[in-house]
Write a protein that binds this DNA or RNA. Structure first.
Lengths: 119, 119
DNA sequence: TTGTTTGGTTTCTTTTTTGTAACTATACAC
DNA sequence: GTGTATAGTTACAAAAAAGAAACCAAACAA
């Protein structure tokens, strides 16, 4: 294995359509926002929770676990007290940057149009 | 107005983050799949329902109405019997092509990795 | 002993999304 | 009159996602 990811997925479990395949992994709002906030680098659980904004602890934990299982996110626990847990993207997670970029670019352009139409 | 879209949105109603802004419009799986299937061109309601696969009539109608209200989709009713209703993307909807492309490209690459890991 | 901190888990409730099935309009064919 | 076809709508039910709040562990500080 050349990459540190959990690719133990059966190919036949994936939808035929590549778009649906991608949605299977990041089809949820929170997952996209985790990606957005980890793209610049490592963050602790609390930082992530705050930067995402509006996520409950429960949901954030659940999404991070899913993304870890999917090989998008890495979790590092430091044996300190109080505990420190850092999250970062795996190479597979970082490979989603073009998707994030396209979402950001479209949103920026759209906001510009909306602002122009409001004048 | 230079474009045929419903941009009657208050700019302050949109999230500050452009990624979240985009998600506000296409943050749902069905919306992305409608986009995917209308990207090549006009489709009738029944065709769309079939090509998306697994959507109920109710949900598809609801999503198409939302996307129409958001200015992404156009609806043309032909006064025939039985009725014919055609859906197509507006320029704003078509402007999401780069997003769709990035989703497709990532999905394709991911499937390749998964297939390689399975060998 | 009690309080503090971080990163959770658990339980319960609410909201959102989706599904199912029945019902509709319209005109034409039989 | 009955059946057919398309593109819906409506009412009701179920499932999934999310939110709120309480609880927990561990070590250190006061």
């Amino acid at each position: 294995m050349t990459e540190t990811t959990a690719l133990g997925v059966s190919p036949q479990d994936l939808p035929a359509c590549p778009v649906e395949t991608t949605l299977r992994l990041i089809g949820n709002k929170w997952e996209v926002l985790v990606l957005r906030d980890l793209m610049p680098g490592t963050k602790r659980f609390g930082e992530l929770k705050q930067s995402i904004g509006g996520v409950s602890q429960k949901v954030l934990t659940a999404k991070l676990r899913e993304m870890e299982a999917d090989g998008l996110v890495e979790r590092h626990v430091y044996a300190e007290v109080p505990p420190r847990v850092e999250y970062s993207l795996t190479p597979l997670g970082r490979s989603l940057k073009p998707v994030l970029d396209s979402l950001e670019q479209w949103g920026t352009a759209y906001k510009k149009k909306v602002a122009a139409a409001a004048r």
